[in-house]
């Protein structure tokens, strides 16, 4: 859709790097199952599946911060599983755009591997937009963004039954400011376990 400007591309690339390196302090870290940062209703979901999440968390802990090869076609053993807390969980989008940018493919592929290696694990994809445009249209746009991420996960073999999509449109901004920089942060899909 919209061609990305060079500074924007740099921003995205640096964000990806920061997230993959585990430096995404602003909500960029996959939350612990009982983290305070989780919105309460999602927390309630987490409570219902608390046993599963806990087990997966421990498994991930055992794997530690060991690096795992993105794009590695070999079978995945538990030893190569990523630590959830070190795996990026935010995918950003262009203005009024629901196409998954190439920069975020690897991040989504890593989640696909994690989900395939953890057959009981389920994933919530939250779609968000910036505040420009009407609220209802943005609700639809947020869903299309979340579904763009979902489609890649499905292509990689993750069963549809383990992925839930919720769009919040512009209702839950990551950054409440009314600036270009805030809008860049708010056009996102959050991957939540």
């Amino acid at each position: 859709m919209m061609p990305m400007t060079a500074p924007l591309r740099t921003l995205f690339l640096s964000l990806v790097f920061a997230l993959l390196a585990g430096c995404g302090s602003r909500g960029g870290v996959a939350p612990e199952p009982d983290s305070d940062q989780l919105p309460p209703a999602v927390e309630a979901q987490g409570m219902q599946g608390a046993d599963q999440s806990g087990a997966a968390g421990q498994e991930a802990d055992r794997a530690g911060a060991e690096s795992f090869g993105v794009g590695d076609d070999g079978a995945i053993s538990s030893a190569t599983l990523p630590d959830l807390s070190e795996l990026g969980t935010l995918v950003y989008f262009g203005f009024d755009d629901d196409n998954l940018q190439p920069e975020f493919r690897d991040l989504v592929l890593a989640h696909a591997r994690y989900l395939i290696a953890n057959p009981t694990q389920t994933l919530l994809l939250e779609g968000h937009t910036d505040e420009r445009g009407t609220r209802e249209y943005n609700l639809a746009l947020g869903e299309r963004r979340a579904k763009a991420v979902r489609n890649l996960l499905l292509l990689e073999g993750v069963p549809a039954s383990r992925i839930r999509v919720v769009s919040y449109g512009e209702e839950r901004p990551a950054n409440p400011s009314h600036t270009e920089a805030a809008w860049d942060e708010n056009r996102r899909v959050e991957l939540k376990y």
């Binding site: 919105p39 609220r135 839950r172």
Partner: peptide
Amino acid sequence: LESVEPIMS
């Protein structure tokens, strides 16, 4: 109505 989750429309 008051909620911790969004209310719209």
